[in-house]
């Protein structure tokens, strides 16, 4: 039994345990839906619920058939490839441009800093449906709708704010005198940027890039409006699967995606710790 201070009444103690119970329930609320779909994805039957066999741990009630279906279905294979291609390309563009911009934005000399920052962060705030509608109207004029180029540009724009936020945060712990020192030794700003700044802010850049990748990897609204049949991505395939025909293949895909997010989370945590060790904020 925990020892409470003498002035605690029974109400204080109830509150103490009550808080634990509430926190536990909220954590369950957060995690349970994600955990529940995992065993369901091994269901031998085409249902979205636990069969009697599953509850009695009958091995025949479990199967890998829905995972096999992902492998067998050409649409899922194309979708998986597209998601990675678009995600990586969009993340590269967003990271390159975003990192450069973050360096400029963290300079004390940056003009119109507040306005430009707000502008560059706005893709994060404007609802996706508005972005999608606008891009559909505008990209059409350049024949970018239904192309990989169009989708990659669109996703790169969405990823930019995340790169700016993470890299700016890393730069705030960065000693600017190193930059000035480099310049005063006669190096060009770009050379200083490449040889001095980049190695120091690398953890921030990588986590920004990861954020940009995940943003693209999860995104479905822009895909719905801008992609043609050849650019279908995993979320797009899931969206039509959920709308049209609910089948446990989606649960298998979902399970794989949860595993992937866990891996990303782990990578980010490692990066954050390394960055913290290097003295930058993460």
């Amino acid at each position: 039994m925990k020892h409470f201070p003498a002035y605690y009444t029974v109400w204080h103690i109830t509150g103490h345990y009550g808080l634990r119970v509430v926190a536990f329930l909220v954590l369950m609320f957060l995690m349970l839906p994600i955990v529940v779909i995992m065993p369901l994805s091994f269901n031998a039957e085409p249902f979205f619920t636990f069969t009697e066999g599953m509850l009695t741990f009958d091995p025949d009630a479990y199967s890998l058939r829905w995972y096999q279906e992902i492998v067998d279905d050409q649409k899922w294979r194309i979708a998986i490839r597209n998601s990675f291609v678009v995600g990586i390309a969009a993340a590269l563009i967003a990271t390159t441009l975003g990192t450069l911009a973050a360096v400029g934005l963290s300079s004390p000399w940056m003009p119109y800093k507040r306005l430009i920052t707000a502008l560059l962060l706005s893709p994060m705030i404007v609802p996706l449906i508005i972005i999608a509608a606008g891009m559909f109207f505008f990209y059409t004029r350049f024949n970018l709708v239904g192309t990989f180029t169009g989708l990659i540009i669109a996703h790169a724009a969405l990823g930019v704010p995340f790169v700016i936020i993470t890299v700016t945060a890393t730069l705030s712990g960065f000693d600017r005198s190193l930059f000035v020192a480099g310049l005063s030794l006669g190096a060009s700003p770009l050379k200083v940027f490449w040889d001095v700044v980049i190695p120091l802010i690398r953890p921030g850049v990588i986590s920004g890039g990861l954020f940009a990748f995940v943003t693209s990897f999860d995104e479905v609204v822009l895909v719905l409006f801008l992609a043609g049949p050849e650019q279908r991505t995993i979320p797009r395939q899931m969206f039509s699967g959920l709308r049209e025909q609910i089948n446990p293949t989606i649960l298998a895909v979902a399970t794989l995606l949860v595993v992937l997010s866990a891996a990303m989370l782990f990578t980010l945590e490692v990066l954050r710790r390394r960055s913290a060790r290097l003295g930058g904020a993460g």
Binding site: F84, V85, I88, A89, L92, T95, F148, I206, G209, E230
Partner: peptide, 19 residues
């Protein structure tokens, strides 16, 4: 890491050309 990403992207693009 950046280099790896570039390599990965190139690999993804060439290994399965956007047929």
């Amino acid at each position: 890491m950046k280099k790896h990403l570039t390599l990965l992207a190139t690999a993804a693009l060439t290994a399965s050309p956007l047929m």
